[in-house]
C-alpha cells in the first residue's frame, strides 16, 4: 500500500509543474459557462413565467454552477491520453516489470491530478460562484449532502474506469483520440453537461438513464439540488454503484485481453 502512497506523492509533484496550464484551463473553461448562463437569463427574461420544466432561473443557474464544481472534482483530464501514449510508445514496459498494478497506479495519478487541479481551479471558480452566490442554493439537508458526497466519489470512479477502458483500446488501434472524442460527445449531452436531463421529454430521459452517462454527472447534481430524492435517490445510488462495479470488471477484462496483444513497441 505504501508504494501507491508514493505514486500519489509523485503525481502531486508532477502535476504541480503544470499549475499555470491548469489555471488557463480553468479560466477559459468558465467562458462557455458564462455564455450558457447568459443565454438562459435571456430566455427567462423573454418568458412570462419564471418556470421552465420545474427550474426557476435561480435553479437553472445553480444547476450549471454545480456541474462546474462536480466537473472540477471528478473529470478526467489528461489521463486517457497518457495511458494511450504509454501503450503506443511502449513506456508501459517498465510497469510490467515492476510489482505494481497499472490500474491502481493510474488511479493514484488520477487522484493526484484532480487534487492539484481542484486546488488551482478553486481560485477562479470560487470567484465566479461568489459573483453568482444569490443563485446558489444549498442542499436540502445533511443526509442529502452525505449522499451527494458518496455519489461524487462514485462519479469520479465511473469517469476514470470509462476513460481507462477507452484508452486501453490502444492495444488494438493505433490512434484512439477520435474514439475518445466521440465518447466525450456522448458524455457531454447524455451526462447533463449541456442542459439538465429532466427538461427532456420523459421517454428520452428514461432511455438516457439506461446508459452510465447520467451517473457521471447529472445524478450527483440532481441529488444536491434535491431534484432526485427519497426512494429514487437510493435507487440511483445503487445503480451508480452497480455501474462502477461493471465498468471496473470491463476495465480488468479489457486489460487482460489487451496485454496478450501487446507488442511492447520501442523495447
Amino acid at each position: 500500500m505504501l508504494k501507491y502512497w508514493h505514486v500519489l506523492n509523485i503525481g502531486l509533484q508532477n502535476t504541480l509543474v503544470y499549475r499555470v496550464n491548469f489555471l488557463f484551463r480553468a479560466v477559459f473553461g468558465l467562458i462557455p459557462l458564462m455564455a450558457t448562463l447568459s443565454l438562459w437569463r435571456t430566455i427567462y427574461a423573454g418568458n412570462t413565467s419564471n418556470d421552465i420544466a420545474g427550474y426557476t432561473l435561480a435553479g437553472m443557474t445553480s444547476y450549471y454552477l454545480l456541474v462546474t464544481l462536480v466537473d472540477m472534482l471528478t473529470a478526467v483530464a489528461e489521463d486517457d491520453w497518457q495511458i494511450a501514449a504509454d501503450i503506443r510508445e511502449g513506456t508501459l514496459n517498465q510497469f510490467l516489470l515492476k510489482p505494481i498494478d497499472y490500474l491502481t497506479y493510474r488511479l493514484c495519478l488520477f487522484g493526484a491530478g484532480r487534487l492539484t487541479y481542484t486546488a488551482v481551479a478553486l481560485i477562479p471558480v470560487s470567484i465566479f460562484i461568489l459573483a453568482q452566490r444569490q443563485y446558489l442554493v444549498g442542499p436540502p439537508d445533511a443526509a442529502t449532502f452525505g449522499v451527494f458526497v458518496i455519489s461524487l466519489l462514485l462519479t469520479a470512479l465511473l469517469q476514470f474506469f470509462l476513460s481507462y477502458t477507452m484508452a486501453l483500446l490502444s492495444f488494438w488501434i493505433l490512434e484512439v483520440s477520435t474514439l475518445i472524442f466521440i465518447m466525450f460527445a456522448f458524455e457531454y449531452i447524455a451526462g447533463g453537461h449541456l442542459f439538465p436531463l429532466d427538461i427532456l421529454p420523459p421517454t428520452l430521459s428514461q432511455i438516457l438513464h439506461l446508459t452510465p452517462f447520467p451517473y457521471q454527472l447529472f445524478f450527483p447534481v440532481g441529488v444536491y439540488l434535491g431534484r432526485i430524492a427519497g426512494e429514487e435517490m437510493w435507487r440511483g445510488l445503487f445503480i451508480q454503484a452497480t455501474w462502477v462495479a461493471i465498468l471496473y470488471g470491463v476495465a480488468r477484462f479489457v486489460w487482460s485481453r489487451g496485454i496478450k496483444k501487446y507488442t511492447a513497441f520501442g523495447g
Binding site: 423573454g46 421552465i52 442542459f195 421529454p201
Partner: peptide
C-alpha cells in the same frame, strides 16, 4: 431542447 421550452431567445 431549449426551443421545446421557449418560443424565442
Amino acid at each position: 431542447v431549449i426551443y421545446q421550452h421557449t418560443s424565442s431567445i
